[in-house]
Amino acid sequence: MSNVAVSEEQTSIVERPEKKAPLGPLFWICVGWIALNFLGAIFANVLPLQNPLYQDYASINVGPSLHHLFGTDDIGRDIFSRIVYGSRVSIAVGFGAMFIGFGIGTPLGMLAAYRRGRFDTIMTSFMYILLAFPAIIATIAILSFWTPRSLLKIIIVIGFASVPLVYRVIRTATLAVSTKDYIIAAKVQGATDRRILLKELLPNIAPIGVSFLLIGVATVIALEGTLAFLGLSVSPPTPSWGNMINESRTVLQVNPWLAIFPSLALCLFLLSLNFIGDRLRNHFDVTEVKL
């Protein structure tokens, strides 16, 4: 392995800074934006917002003004208030579904990678077959047959559909970590499996898990928007970002604000999530674990 030593001589000192990539101010702006959205979703009832369902026929399709920050929609509802309330659906679906996906996928993936053997073989083949199915079609098919639709059902269906993906990521990450010397050392010292899994492996795959989780949340939120377009998400008049954008289609020429503001809310939220996820991944330098 002398080649390794010499190639280090040329490259490692030059191109591989030992320091972790800094998170940067943009990272914290994104974190702040997500936090702000969370606060808005939680305290929507308490905040001095107009009723998101109240139809003010006196002001229909009006542009942004002091009274209606983002204007009103085609039946006179306040867009700003609907966006704040709508974030509840996106946040609930995104984080709820990932809670289920990671809740099931993480322990299975870690166990499979740690135990290897037959459990791993069976589990992994099973998950890979599930992955072969186009999850999006399965999601749509199930949601369209499973009526009446509710937020909880959407969360459950998407959550379960994400399990194979989460499983694959976690298993790959755990495999990469479990061959490291400190894990082997822990095993040799007679640490219990439970201890190794929870105290050694889990903290080490957490960075990968968290960054994938955030990107997963973003994907699920976009998926909820898609479902809304197909009429498969929460039913109107409950506002969700997807619903609002969908409703805007018919009045696009008359009232572009109805499309632009919810789109902006959705895109900024997704952008922040993706950015945080990406930065964390760079920060913990987990790119070599191919996900």
Binding site: S2, A5, V6, E9, Q10, V14, E15
Partner: peptide, 22 residues
């Protein structure tokens, strides 16, 4: 020994050093 700069030297003689940060 490795790390003595002989590889960098041979590349510099050829002009093959990396193009940045050198």
């Amino acid at each position: 020994e490795s790390g003595s700069g002989k590889t960098v030297l041979s590349r510099t003689i050829m002009g093959l050093q990396p193009r940045t940060n050198v």
